[in-house]
């Protein structure tokens, strides 16, 4: 099996990773890194700090793999870890910036220096990042789940452990806020 994990399903990868198989865990990281990046960067912005949080997500996953019973999908399990760590980071930054600045909210979201090689892609991603940056964190997480991850409202509610009605009302308010923000961009 070693060396041919591309075809392996998630449960096989989990089993091998629990036994300390480095290649199997690399395949898990490779498979879900973009999903984690969408959540973390969607919530925190595109910066080196987001990459640190991304690494923490997979380190935490590795240490909790033996507790993973396979009742939920591995992607959902990883997604929940990513959301928890990202929300913790937002809280941490909020506390930190509130000590130094009156307007801490704007400093919670960071932008990386854009890559000049691909202007069109850069513009599209930057537009989305700017739109997300203008949202309150509680709306931003819902928009990230819907827009960047493509989850349905029901799935979003399950992952975020929120009532469906709360997700629907936040989505509607987020949509209004986004229209306003995008109108200015």
């Amino acid at each position: 099996m070693k060396g041919s994990y591309r075809q392996a399903d998630d449960s096989e990868l989990v089993k091998a990773s629990v036994n300390g198989d480095r290649l199997a865990f690399s395949e898990i990281v490779e498979r879900y890194r973009r999903m984690v990046a969408r959540t973390v960067k969607g919530m925190l912005g595109d910066s080196v700090f987001s990459e640190d949080i991304g690494q923490e997500v997979f380190i935490k996953l590795y240490h909790s793999l033996s507790d993973f019973r396979g009742e939920a999908r591995l992607s959902t399990y990883i997604q929940k870890i990513a959301i928890n760590l990202t929300l913790n980071e937002i809280k941490r930054r909020k506390r930190f910036f509130s000590m130094f600045s009156q307007d801490g909210e704007n400093e919670l979201y960071e932008h990386e220096i854009p890559d000049p090689e691909n202007e069109q892609k850069r513009d599209a991603t930057e537009l989305v990042s700017k739109a997300l940056a203008g949202l309150e964190p509680k709306f931003r997480i819902i928009v990230t789940m819907r827009m960047l991850q493509g989850y349905s409202t029901k799935e979003t509610a399950e992952i975020l452990n929120l009532p469906l009605g709360t997700v629907l009302s936040r989505l509607s308010r987020a949509q209004e806020q986004l229209k306003e923000i995008l109108g200015k961009l």
Binding site: E51, R122, L148
Partner: peptide, 10 residues
């Protein structure tokens, strides 16, 4: 082109 990913050696 709306893509988010980490660095190459992530």
């Amino acid at each position: 082109g709306v893509t988010f990913d980490f660095g190459r050696d992530f």
